[in-house]
Structure formats: structure tokens, C-alpha cells
């Protein structure tokens, strides 16, 4: 698992540096334009996590890397666990980067009160709990999407999997909301959900759900990957 994690880090390090710089600039710009600090962590989180995830998964199919890797002393379970760990670390890293960008944007707003584009950010203040909430929500949503995508990639490879991901994602969300029950399209339902989540217990529940969904997906991917031939 450690070797696989290292392999992913080495493979994406160069892209990650580029993406980090771009994300910082774009994040602060988005904060200034939208007048909200809380949009930055999910924005940067999704942007980096998904662009790099797709890159690292696509690299598997280049030069038969995925086949060669399994000829080394790495078990298929090592490969799956390493990949899940590296992408989760990437998601957390990019979200934390988003939080950092938000703090920098807030600092800039305090330092330069005369800049009209930043004035709104300074005026609204910084709510630490709200920032933690959007960060956890960002990690949760990224993880759920990765949890849907990764088993398909391990089962079919990215080229084939990418055709099935939208269908499976829609089905998963439909089934989830059908299971939850209630009028999920009503504003009141959405407000109630956010009210429940915007508490320390809600936050902890989201973390726990992330672990369950992502961990379950990892187990499923491991079983599917065992059957794959190269």
C-alpha cells in the first residue's frame, strides 16, 4: 500500500504544483467576485481533487503501467488501498488548500479595506464552524463521487468506466433519496437537512458517513479488481 501511495504521489507531484498555484489564484478571485469565503474550499477541493484524480487514473492505462505494476510484489489489495488512500489524501489536501485560500482572501480583505471587491468579505466576518462545515461537506461530496467512480475504474479501466460513471452516479443518488424518503425536492427539506448537518453532531455524522461510504467502496473495488485480467 505504501509503494502504491508513493507511486501516485510521484506520478502527480508535478501536476499538483501547477494546480495548486492555479487554484489559489482562481479561489481568491472567486471569493472576491462572489463575496463569500465559504465557496472557496469546495471550489478548490473539487477542482484539484477531480482533475488530479482523473490524471492519476488515466496514467494507469499508459504504457501498460497497471499491468506491469501487478507483476511487481504488489498485491491487488495493495494497489486498491494505496489508490484510495492517495485520492483521499489528495481530497483532504485540496480542501485544506481551499480553507487556506479563504483565510488568505479574508486577510487580504482586512489588510486592504479600501478595495471594494474585498469589502464584502471583511464585512461578513469569518465563522470558524461554518468554514469547518464547508470543508467537511466538500470532502464528503468528493469522497462519495470517488466512491462511485473508483470501483468502476478498477473493474473496467478508466476508458470503459467513464461511460458508466454518470449512469451509476445518477442511479446511486436516486436510490439514496428514494431511501431517505420525504419530498427531497422541496426547499424546506433541504433547509432541514442543512440545519441538521450544521451542528457538531451533523459534522461528526458526515465524517462517519464518509468513512463508511469510502471504506465500503474500497472493499468493493478490491473484490472487483481481483477478477480483472491484464
Amino acid at each position: 500500500m505504501k509503494a502504491m501511495f508513493l507511486s501516485d504521489v510521484i506520478a502527480v507531484r508535478k501536476y499538483l504544483k501547477q494546480q495548486t498555484i492555479i487554484a489559489f489564484v482562481v479561489g481568491i478571485f472567486v471569493a472576491a467576485m462572489s463575496g463569500s469565503l465559504y465557496a472557496i474550499p469546495p471550489f478548490i477541493g473539487f477542482m484539484i481533487a477531480f482533475s488530479i484524480s482523473f490524471t492519476v487514473i488515466a496514467l494507469d492505462e499508459a504504457s501498460n503501467w497497471q499491468g506491469f505494476r501487478l507483476a511487481l510484489p504488489l498485491s491487488r489489495a495493495d494497489v486498491v488501498r494505496g489508490r484510495y488512500a492517495s485520492l483521499l489524501a489528495l481530497t483532504c489536501y485540496s480542501t485544506l488548500l481551499g480553507v487556506l485560500a479563504a483565510l488568505i482572501a479574508y486577510g487580504l480583505a482586512l489588510l486592504f479595506p479600501g478595495v471594494s471587491q474585498l469589502a464584502e468579505l471583511a464585512g461578513a466576518g469569518l465563522d470558524g464552524f461554518a468554514m469547518a462545515f464547508v470543508a467537511v461537506l466538500s470532502v464528503f461530496l468528493c469522497s462519495v463521487l470517488l466512491a462511485i467512480m473508483l470501483p468502476l475504474c478498477f473493474c473496467f479501466g478508466m476508458t470503459k468506466a467513464i461511460r458508466w460513471v454518470p449512469l451509476v452516479a445518477v442511479l446511486a443518488f436516486v436510490l439514496f433519496f428514494a431511501g431517505v424518503g420525504g419530498d427531497v425536492t422541496s426547499v424546506a427539506w433541504i433547509v432541514n437537512v442543512f440545519d441538521a448537518l450544521l451542528t457538531p453532531v451533523g459534522l461528526a455524522a458526515m465524517v462517519a458517513l464518509t468513512v463508511v461510504v469510502y471504506g465500503g467502496s474500497c472493499l468493493l473495488a478490491g473484490k472487483l479488481y481481483l477478477k480483472r485480467e491484464f
Binding site: K2, A3, L6, S7, I10, A11, R13, K14, Y15, L59, A62, S63, N64, W65, G67, F68, R69, A71, L72, P73, L74
Partner: peptide, 29 residues
């Protein structure tokens, strides 16, 4: 497979890895 060394018909390591980084990865394997 710890006791098996493998070479395929193409250099399969990720394109952006340097020679040194490939060595580091293999050392971890």
C-alpha cells in the same frame, strides 16, 4: 514476486517520473 524481476517490452513506469523517482518507488516495492 519479491523473488521475481520483470521487464516488459516497453518501459512501463509513469511518464512524469524521473529515473531517481522510479528507483525510490521500486525500493518501496
Amino acid at each position: 514476486r519479491q523473488r521475481v524481476g520483470v521487464v516488459f517490452d516497453t518501459c512501463a513506469f509513469p511518464a512524469e517520473s524521473t529515473v531517481d523517482e522510479v528507483g525510490r518507488f521500486m525500493a518501496a516495492c
